[in-house]
Design a protein around this nucleic acid. Structure first.
Lengths: 139, 139
DNA sequence: GTATAAATGCAATAGAGTTGCAAATAGATG
DNA sequence: CATCTATTTGCAACTCTATTGCATTTATAC
């Protein structure tokens, strides 16, 4: 992605522009799927693990990325599509995890069907779907 | 629960009857919601942490309980309703997490709506719903 | 250029979960 | 009931993920 665009995203969220943040943001925008901490750690070896953790946490706080909890117990991070305000994420898209390649994708065009549960008040719903992604299904 | 019934469940899964397994099983059957490791550790202090972990893992292997991944990142465990064979769990019920009391419930009468995703093969779907449970909503 | 608040790197720490191994025990056998 | 064996348990040590404290560095406002 063009460097100026990355800078603009950080500025739009009132964040200082640092090399680490630019690189992490670029990683998210340059891939079609969610990233785990390990993905980033393996790719951006020039930064300390702690800095990467803090970068991810500040991106979550600012509403730039969101956590994805998969059945592996590992947490992945995906770019936010709709407007997530600081400290408040609004996601209603489906998450897909491919059991072959292990990649997790956000499917922003697939909304989570929220069931009515009598006697309960529902505020949020997360749907994780497992299977084979389009790439792995054709191999 | 009656001790003989607990014994019968273990025997039906070809497991040796031990005090820890009886107590863990009784904990699951005596509560209306899922249990975290911490719940069990706090309740069954007479057993070693490692023994509790191994008990939970063997119950999962045998299809007696299943893991529930919530948005907190903590794993909870729920009794299996439908027939889960060893090493293969079949769950299609909704999981609910109350944001007030923190309890996680299995809702066996609410099935997970599985979306069709073009170009993808879907094998499983997990739905976690957040909100207020019936107890907390009336307080 | 300088001041200052924020970000970084390193070391230490916290917490969840697992593994190795010796001791204890469930359950099968005679 | 005694004995044998495979399973289970408890303890210690360890692995892995993630966080915190603190000194140093850096981005940005002036």
């Amino acid at each position: 992605m063009i460097y100026g665009d990355l800078e603009a995203i950080l500025r739009a969220h009132a964040m200082r522009i640092t090399a680490c943040r630019i690189d992490v943001l670029d990683s998210f925008l340059g891939t079609g799927h969610a990233l785990s901490f390990k993905d980033l750690e393996g790719k951006l070896t020039q930064y300390d693990r702690v800095t990467l953790y803090r970068t991810l946490n500040s991106f979550i706080d600012k509403g730039i990325i969101h956590k994805i909890f998969s059945d592996s117990g590992f947490i992945s991070f995906g770019i936010c599509y709709d407007t997530c305000s600081p400290h408040h994420h609004h996601h209603n898209h489906v998450h897909f995890k491919c059991d072959a390649c292990g990649n997790i994708e956000c499917l922003p065009s697939y909304h989570v069907p929220v069931p009515e549960i009598s006697g309960y008040k529902i505020t949020e719903a997360n749907l994780l779907v497992n299977g084979l992604c389009s790439k792995c299904i054709s191999n």
